[in-house]
Design a protein around this nucleic acid. Structure first.
Lengths: 223, 223
DNA sequence: TACTCCACGGGTACAGTGTTCCCATGACAG
DNA sequence: CTGTCATGGGAACACTGTACCCGTGGAGTA
């Protein structure tokens, strides 16, 4: 049936739908991502979307893949460990640009072509340090896991704020009062030190610290 | 109003609700966890639950805290790194017992008293290696992040199978065909090696590998 | 040109969801 | 006994994803 172009030309396309969905999820979060909202944004009927997409699950997979498609691999150097770190930072940056992916990425692992492409690049970097395919696979998985989890943790606070409609200050104070009560019990001395002494507020620093630990360990284990 | 026991005695309690909710989520997954189902399981009216719980969000937070409550800290040895690993494995075991928590844990970080207790224990272990409160906090966060992410990744496959109703064999074959197509294009040589050569199917081994990397790096960075 | 086909757009409907509002019930304080 | 009030629970609302159905219009064929 070679290129049968029977019927009306599509005004809607899969690409347009995915783009609108990503824009909506970026702007208002995963909870606001409903088929009706997407259709409204596109000025089309709700159920028309199903002509190009089998369901919401597939749509989210396509959205995830689209994010990985825009993720271009960082320029390679002669230091494989630095290159691996750069890949991790690039992935983190993409996840921060699209906060919904860090949350959704945990419950379904996408396997779109562009996801595979990115995975392939990272595997290539690791293969400069080892020939063991199993080890390379586990290294990449460890790094991806850490990046994904780190971003998700960082964003969870913001997500709560958006859902409750609290400003950051209100939220800080509400949590602060509760934490203060916990501290006053004196039951958790190390937790108290953490709250009172630790300066770990900067998500960037937390990420870099964990990344440094993980990469240091990876280099040691691979050697 | 000291201990005013006006009105009817509660047949429902927060604890019973949380217990029923955990049992339901364990058995049928997070998607099956609805207020109506919980109420049905308890033989009560749906909206009666709201007498003891402000909403579903709080309920899930209570559920998370309850899981941490049953998580008893492993016995300490004289090796802080081994103790830290034991804490990581205990956390992983708890998350595998309650698969919904690994998924939900990524979008809301619970701060219940038992969560704080567990955090305090881990901080105590790390403080045997360093006095820097910031570093200790970041070490614990890195480990928790990795464990959470690792379990979530491991469970995502099972979740897909449950949702689609496919058996593991059907799922393997469906994915296998797609992956075979990707391999045949030959565009991703490292990905191909990973699929064809790598033996990384055992989630336990993957977790232990990543854990070893992370802990090795942590020891090095802290020294 | 006339006819047929069918991909597409979209309205309706259904089984769910979390949650608010309201009322009835029953046990305790006075 | 009377009044108070925490509790249980029904009705209703504004949502959700999506299966089913129908109308339309442009392209291929006779």
């Amino acid at each position: 049936m070679r290129d049968r172009q029977r019927g009306a030309r599509p005004a809607l396309t899969e690409e347009k739908i995915v783009r609108a969905a990503i824009a909506l999820a970026d702007a208002e979060g995963l909870d606001a991502l409903s088929m009706r909202r997407i259709a409204a944004e596109l000025g089309s009927g709700t159920t028309s979307l199903y002509r190009h997409i089998t369901g919401k699950d597939e749509l989210i997979e396509l959205m995830a893949n689209a994010v990985f498609a825009e993720l271009e691999p960082p320029a390679g150097t002669d230091d494989w460990l630095a290159d691996l770190a750069a890949h991790g930072r690039a992935l983190r940056a993409a996840l921060l640009r699209h906060p919904w992916l860090a949350q959704q990425g945990m419950r379904r692992q996408a396997l779109g072509p562009d996801v595979i492409r990115q995975s392939d690049h990272m595997l290539g970097v690791v293969h400069r340090a080892t020939d063991d395919a199993s080890q390379a696979a586990m290294v990449v998985e460890s790094l991806t896991t850490f990046v994904l989890g780190s971003v998700a943790a960082q964003l969870s606070d913001l997500e709560v704020q958006r859902k409750t409609g609290m400003t950051e200050v209100e939220w800080q104070r509400a949590v602060g009062e509760y934490v203060q009560q916990v501290i006053d019990t004196g039951q958790f001395p190390h937790f108290n030190r953490r709250i009172l002494e630790a300066d770990d507020r900067d998500p960037e620093a937390r990420f870099e610290f964990g990344l440094a630990c993980l990469l240091t360990g990876i280099r040691q284990v691979l050697s």
